[in-house]
């Protein structure tokens, strides 16, 4: 595979095929953990690590797995990576692990991961699969961080925990509460759609 197509595989996750904005995958963690930018980033990177790991392993062993048991085999591989990340984060990043809570084990059912395993890693080479996993994962992390930053800015009056004058004392609380997650993401997707349409036209 040439380096041009590899670059394309890598960058597609950010806007063109962004898992959140365009494919609407992985909505639960997207809405659930983005009450602050740092939580969004943490969740995005944890998902990236799982995606990268599972894509690499599946690309390596794809020929050893009979077709009929493909899905259960993929699920075990993904669930193992999720548990490894879960335990590692609990040991070395306890505050972040506590914040993300239930959504860490739930990475297992994030449709992005099984989707990439099935659609990409089980048919492509090791290098391409790794690049795909990294690109898609970072695209997911980018979307979560952006949404987290917007919600934190409006709802808590801070950016990455740094207070913003005026807004910090008068935050629009609704944005860090559950309804705000839906509303902020809705408008964010509308903006992204408009931008994509303009770029495509």
């Amino acid at each position: 595979m040439s380096s041009v197509t590899l670059t394309r595989e890598f960058t597609k996750g950010f806007l063109r095929e962004n898992p959140v904005f365009v494919l609407l995958l992985g909505m639960c963690p997207t809405l659930g953990v983005t009450s602050s930018a740092i939580n969004g980033l943490g969740m995005g990177l944890a998902t990236t690590a799982v995606l990268l790991g599972s894509n690499i392993v599946i690309a390596v062993v794809k020929d050893l797995i009979p077709d009929k048991v493909r899905i259960p085999a993929f699920i075990v591989i993904i669930a193992s990576f999720v548990t490894i990340i879960d335990l590692t984060m609990a040991a070395f990043l306890p505050p972040l692990h506590e914040q993300l809570g239930l959504f860490i084990p739930l990475i297992v059912v994030n449709c992005i991961i099984l989707g990439r395993a099935e659609a990409f890693a089980s048919r492509n080479t090791l290098v391409a699969s790794a690049v795909d996993g990294l690109g898609m994962g970072l695209g997911f992390a980018f979307a979560l961080t952006l949404l987290g930053a917007i919600r934190e800015f409006l709802g808590a009056g801070a950016i990455f925990g740094l207070p913003v004058p005026f807004l910090f004392d008068n935050p629009i609380l609704i944005f860090i509460m559950p309804p705000g997650a839906f509303i902020a993401l809705g408008f964010l997707i509308a903006v992204v759609n408009t931008l994509r349409e303009k770029a495509g036209a």
Binding site: I65, P66, D67, V69, A73, T83, L87, T88
Partner: peptide, 30 residues
């Protein structure tokens, strides 16, 4: 490399192997 056939023994062996490797990796991490 040729893709492994979906015969019953093949499926059984592969899934058992994957489960064992995964349990070992998790045990080590734990």
């Amino acid at each position: 490399m040729k893709k492994l056939e979906s015969t019953l023994p093949n499926m059984f062996i592969v899934l058992t192997l994957i489960a064992l490797i995964s349990a070992a990796a998790l045990g080590a991490t734990y």
